[in-house]
Amino acid sequence: MADLADTSFSGRALRRRTFLRVAGATAASSALVLAGCGNDDDDPTPGPDAGTGTLVLAANDTGILNLTYLLAQIQASLYQKVVTTPPSDFTAADTAAFVDMRDHEVIYREFYKSVLGTSVYDNGLITALEFNFTPYTLTTRKGAYEAARTLEDLAVGAYNGLGRRLANSSYLRLLLKITSVKARHAAFVRDQVEFNSFAGPDVITPTGNQAGLDTIKTPAEVAKLLAPLVPIVLVADNLMTL
């Protein structure tokens, strides 16, 4: 009963194994490590826009906030893309909602950047990362809402998993202030894709001793789910030790 929902045996095994690899590879820093030559052969997950960097998140609040910063960057970028080029079947209400959510995500992005100061992972990068949204169909209303749904649900799960890992309780209070707004976004966009799916069984555990509880994701799960969208290798395994 008292097992943590996001700590499975396989998760622990993975954590040990990858921690050794990461610890050997880099200092525990959240800096984006740029490989000089961008040799695709060395890239474990080459993709159409695969970059040449690896982001290793540190096992501390800075690592956690860099992950929430990255999530906000991705979501702000997605909403901006839809607001700039709205699907032809978007209504005025759809646009207004996406503008609101875009503004909220920009506010989160700049908030995290401000808190992180020089510890922000992309400090010193000449151009910001460009995210790959080709897994989504942003040219239709349904596709835009489905993309929003995927990312908002992912963010809620990520935030629920990160909360207990934060050491600084003033950061946790801010994270919670944001979590519920993200959950409101998630419920809204889910209802737009399929009405009454705001708290569906794919996000709220339907049965068993966690019935009624919302989605939760480990940092490693979040990194894996974000991998197709980011032009870098994202390593969140250090956060699993928190």
Partner: peptide, 29 residues
């Protein structure tokens, strides 16, 4: 704030909290 020493209960509250927010958003919709 009052349950942070208990990681299980912290997670349980967090997951209830976001579920409540989903419900709130739906009722507003």
């Amino acid at each position: 704030d009052f349950v942070r020493a208990d990681a299980y209960l912290t997670e349980t509250l967090l997951r209830s909290h976001s579920a409540e927010a989903r419900h709130a958003a739906h009722l507003r919709t």
